[in-house]
């Protein structure tokens, strides 16, 4: 009799365990994955292209988004072109509906120069389909750049820069204007032929002179700090190298001790068109003759101990003339620069 009770208990325990298991299962029967009608249905434009506001002032922190709807989820390319500047912002994605989540414009640029206060044409295309939708939006104010700007060269070259130029032929280290522009109306041009050394010239921004001696005041968390710059080299050449060097005052004595304190570097090989390059401070490495190697100092990425920023313009001495332009050299926090 007792054994039968034991058996019953076993049954009851099993049943209870399984019942609890079942009860905890709230089966989700919503279809999995992307809708087949989005993937394989017939393409039709259901709602035309509309801007959320006809005029936008990015300087006031405003933004504008675009809406449109098609019958299926498909690739789209939204292109905003400044009528005066020729600046282009391109937004790409895949969706059935364009809205603030996937078609938001905060005044940034995909293809330099940056936008001005101007009228912009907006074009929406769907690759693979002939339909093209058009619209427009007026920019009343350009975006405010939230960054520690080393130089944007709009007022000539900042006097805090320490310049070194080798002896060579066709040496150009000057602020320039005129198309093609990147940010604003001026940029810095470096060029020349130095047949006996890789270094053509360099500019350095010491902490001691930046911001009237107040320093860079960067965040101590290297994961949060980004160095940004816009670069290009003369079309038809591919020999220009920009070497960025960030030297740290590890021991806090106010000076950088060569061979004892950290120097973080990155090599940049610009393309023929303006490109915004951003580097997270913590991703920078120690370079010796272009190869990554062990840290020189304490091995810690410490932006708050940055002693000076050096931008070296290099080229293989046997490669002949090299030319490279740069603009908007700055540090940002939390995210790369968006221009």
């Amino acid at each position: 009799m007792c054994s039968m009770r034991l058996t019953s208990k076993i049954f009851a325990t099993t049943l209870a365990a399984l019942t609890i298991g079942f009860a905890s299962c709230d089966r989700d029967l919503n279809p999995e994955g992307p809708a087949l009608t989005d993937l394989y249905g017939t393409f039709k434009v259901k709602t035309g292209l509309v801007a959320s506001q006809a005029q936008v002032n990015f300087a006031n922190g405003e933004s504008v988004y675009f809406t449109a709807e098609t019958s299926i989820s498909t690739d789209f390319v939204l292109t905003i072109t400044g009528q005066t500047s020729g600046a282009i912002k391109r937004i790409e994605g895949k969706a059935r509906t364009l809205d603030a989540t996937n078609a938001l414009w905060q005044g940034e640029t995909s293809q330099f120069p940056t936008f001005q206060t101007e009228m912009c044409d907006v074009m929406l295309t769907y690759p693979g389909y002939p339909d093209t939708l058009y619209g427009s939006v007026q920019v009343l104010g350009t975006r405010i750049i939230d960054a520690t700007i080393l130089d944007d060269f709009e007022n000539g070259m900042a006097p805090e820069w320490v310049k070194f130029i080798q002896t060579g032929a066709n040496m150009k280290f000057t602020v320039q204007g005129g198309a093609p522009l990147a940010e604003g109306t001026s940029y810095y041009k470096m060029g020349g032929t130095v047949a006996w050394d890789w270094l053509i010239g360099m500019i350095e921004m010491p902490k001691s002179t930046f911001n009237s001696g107040a320093g860079f005041n960067l965040n101590s968390d290297a994961e949060q700090v980004y160095f940004n710059g816009v670069f290009r080299q003369l079309a038809g050449l591919d020999n220009a190298i920009i070497l960025l060097q960030l030297r740290e005052d590890d021991n806090g004595d106010g000076a950088y001790s060569e061979g004892n304190e950290d120097m973080w570097s990155v090599e940049i090989r610009p393309g023929a068109t303006w490109e915004l390059d951003s580097y997270k401070y913590s991703d920078l490495v120690t370079l010796v003759n272009g190869a990554a190697s062990a840290a020189i100092g304490n091995g810690l990425h410490e932006p708050d101990k940055l002693h000076r920023v050096s931008i070296l313009f290099l080229a293989n001495p046997s490669s002949g003339y090299a030319e490279c332009d740069t603009d908007m050299l700055c540090f940002t926090e939390n995210a790369p620069l968006a221009l």
Binding site: R27, D28, L29, N30, P31, E32, G33, P34, A35, L36, T37, L39
Partner: peptide, 8 residues
């Protein structure tokens, strides 16, 4: 199927 794949 019990749950649809991309459709109900």
């Amino acid at each position: 199927e019990i749950r649809g794949q991309g459709t109900e």
